[in-house]
């Protein structure tokens, strides 16, 4: 099984350790993982802003980079949602459709494709609050959103519960958006920051020591908000915990 690793641009630049953890974790399961060296971005900043024509060349590059693989895996629900649902600025050839269909977010890849039963190397003796990115939650169905009258499930919590020593605490508003929203964070900064302040305060009140998420983008925003208002929270990507990081 050949896996193409997609490392989103902000992970590449700001949280390289998340890319490294994702690579190492996949390799722990004996997978053949490649990082196509010419990769850049999934095109989301442009399509999110309505500028589909401006995203076309970036989308074509993504498809060119990842067409050769059996699966594409990325440590970001938001980018995977873009690829799966919104990579439509270029003609939908069989190749494009195939890449879109075989692109998976790390948590769902571990949970649904590899069906991982245990992470014997993982131990995280801390109280954590989980933050579900909205695209991961409602776009690619990581978990049952709180609005729906349906049986509860959560793929990221299923995985985290296999980690030794971890304690999970729930904020009062479990799926309230943290206000990142891609370009929303810079075009509507006041509301975005206020949502972030409220989010990190909610996690702190629930007793969390760490906020854990499958998306670095939300956490980059929340970390900036927490530091600004002095909420002593730490942030860590789920890939690092599952790969055995202890702090």
């Amino acid at each position: 099984m050949r896996i193409g690793l997609f490392v989103p641009c902000y992970v590449d630049a700001f949280e390289p350790e998340v890319g490294i953890a994702t690579l190492e974790l996949l390799e722990r399961f004996g997978l053949d993982v490649d990082y196509p060296f010419d990769q850049t971005c999934c095109g989301q900043p442009m399509t999110n802003t309505g500028c589909h024509a401006e995203a076309a060349a970036t989308e074509a590059l993504f498809v060119k980079n990842f067409a050769p693989f059996d699966y594409v895996v990325a440590p970001s629900g938001s980018c995977v949602h873009q690829v799966r649902e919104h990579l439509t600025a270029i003609p939908q050839t069989d190749e494009v459709k195939a890449v879109r269909a075989k692109t998976f977010e790390l948590v769902e890849f571990l949970h649904d494709i590899l069906k991982v039963e245990e992470f014997p190397w993982a131990e995280f003796p801390h109280r954590v609050g989980y933050h579900g990115n909205c695209n991961a939650l409602r776009g690619i169905h990581h978990a049952r959103p709180s609005e729906l009258n349906a049986p509860f499930f959560s793929k990221p919590l299923d995985l985290l519960k296999k980690v030794k020593g971890i304690e999970i605490v729930a904020p009062a508003r479990p799926d309230e958006c943290c206000g990142f929203g891609g370009t929303f964070s810079v075009f509507e900064p006041a509301v975005s920051a206020k949502m972030g302040y409220d989010k990190v305060s909610d996690h702190a009140q629930a007793g969390a020591e760490y906020v854990v998420s499958a998306d670095s983008s939300c956490m980059m925003h929340q970390k900036g908000c927490a530091e600004r208002i002095g909420v002593p929270l730490k942030f860590i990507h789920i890939a690092r915990i599952l790969n055995g990081a202890t702090a």
């Binding site: 909205c134 958006c177 929303f184």
Partner: peptide, 9 residues
């Protein structure tokens, strides 16, 4: 339409 994070709730 830009005054939204498109969170889907």
């Amino acid at each position: 339409p830009f005054s939204s994070t498109m969170n889907g709730s």
